[in-house]
Design a protein around this nucleic acid. Structure first.
Lengths: 253, 253
DNA sequence: TGCGTTCTGTGCGTTGGCGAACAGACCCGG
DNA sequence: CCGGGTCTGTTCGCCAACGCACAGAACGCA
């Protein structure tokens, strides 16, 4: 259990040059991220940024009438707290852990110091921001033009890409609230996907058995987002074998 | 006609400290922006950034099937080309002039040089980016949860805020394509608003006669966006009386 | 093993928005 | 002042998604 966690599991951290990584590493704090944990509350002050490793976090906007929609998901490919980088101390969005796991958090000031050096960290994180903007925009269009079933496919695939396994622990109710649709709508769409043999599910567990099948149903939005991430962050998955010594020493912080 | 145009009509340019402004000013190029002009094509390489003064530009995403939605509008409060700043040389979005007028453009390299000094220009533009992200996100939620009529109100008000007058030159067809809805839907919604006495229109012209009335119908999304812009860019509308000598000399560039 | 909770399936009626089609109104240019 | 193109108003059928309500199934805990 001691060497399971490594900041390099997060692709952004892994992509940092050694010098930058070494400066940040002492301040990275491993934390459990439990299903339902609220990382940011709408309008709240941002104290930390988060780099998920095994967890997935959903960023969404909530309306006065209680309706809401996910506008982006963040897993080990990204970070939470972009609005800090942008200079807003808060954000109108809400960030909730959607799949339990772990991640590293960093006090805002440390990242900002690094960011303000205007070096590789700034450039990397801005490119990530650009990818995030694409994801949000595509979500907006998708919300308007595509069916619940298509959107479910998109969401499943995007989530799957962030998971090590092909099973997601997730109720239909929860998925519905992510997509901003009715639970029954998800039930129906999921039923179709199951009858096609693409997925199987039971009470809170969805297993993707035919990923290629899902891809035949999904709308272009999925591919647009993936492509843009790949384009902007192609260099990001490289570095894996970095020595973990520096961090294990402060994992308990 | 000679002193009508001034870069300070754009709020971002106006908010720059003198030193930064003076460095950029020689490279600002006044250009007409005509209705329908395409500033950025989806996937195209970005050569310039644009600071609208009297024009309004619509940023939208287009789907394979031809459907599309505006994800943000940019007028004299902002700039086009955020993805350049983010380090992506292109963007999957499309930018089209929605209301004819003027603006200043700047070769990408000049802004990037300034941006990379990591001074006030960077900070200002990042905060603008954050505001833009809010606008996109709120649009995504709005697309999902609010009626065409509410969205029309939101769109009218946001557009109105960027115009000097209370009349917009705009066909219902065009508005429909912005919102990503049917033209008939706009006709119906606009009809209601007119019967309430909030607006009046005739073939391609909409006049807002009761702005307060519109605000009673609009969804919260409008206010959220406005508030966030105000919060992030409150210092931006200040400087107005800056000497225009430096620019008039190169207006013809 | 049994019980309560939570999740899923299903069946209503309702509705907002879509798609297509067409008539009338308006405007501009010749 | 006329005519053609464009914009607007309206209709009708259709369907996806909504909201509500309830029954059955699965699971977890005692």
């Amino acid at each position: 259990m001691s060497s399971v966690h490594d900041p390099n599991q997060n692709h952004l951290l892994a992509a940092l040059p050694d010098a930058e990584f070494d400066r940040l590493a002492p301040h990275l704090e491993l934390i459990p991220m439990l299903l339902g944990d609220v990382l940011y509350e709408s309008g709240g002050r941002l104290q930390h940024v988060y780099f998920p490793t095994t967890a997935i976090v959903s960023v969404h906007y909530v309306l006065e009438n209680g309706g809401s929609s996910e506008i982006a998901g963040v897993g080990n490919e990204g970070l939470l707290g972009v609005s800090l980088l942008m200079g807003g101390e808060s954000t109108p969005s809400r960030a909730v852990v959607q799949t339990g796991g772990h991640g590293y958090r960093l006090k805002a000031q440390f990242l900002m110091t690094e960011f303000n050096r205007a070096g590789p960290v700034l450039r990397l994180l801005l490119r990530y921001t650009q990818a995030l903007i694409t994801q949000m925009s595509q979500t907006a269009v998708c919300n308007r033009h595509h069916s619940v079933e298509q959107q479910l496919c998109r969401w499943l695939l995007l989530t799957l890409d962030r998971l090590p396994s092909n099973e997601l622990t997730m109720t239909q109710e929860l998925i519905a609230s992510m997509l901003g649709v009715r639970r029954e709508g998800v039930t129906e769409a999921a039923g179709k996907l199951q009858s096609h043999g693409f997925i199987r599910y039971r009470r809170g567990h969805i297993t993707v058995v035919d990923r290629a099948g899902l891809e035949t149903q999904v709308c272009e939005c999925y591919h647009v987002v993936k492509k843009e991430f790949a384009r902007l962050l192609s260099d990001v998955r490289q570095r894996q074998g970095r020595v973990a010594s520096k961090m294990t020493s402060n994992r308990a912080a």
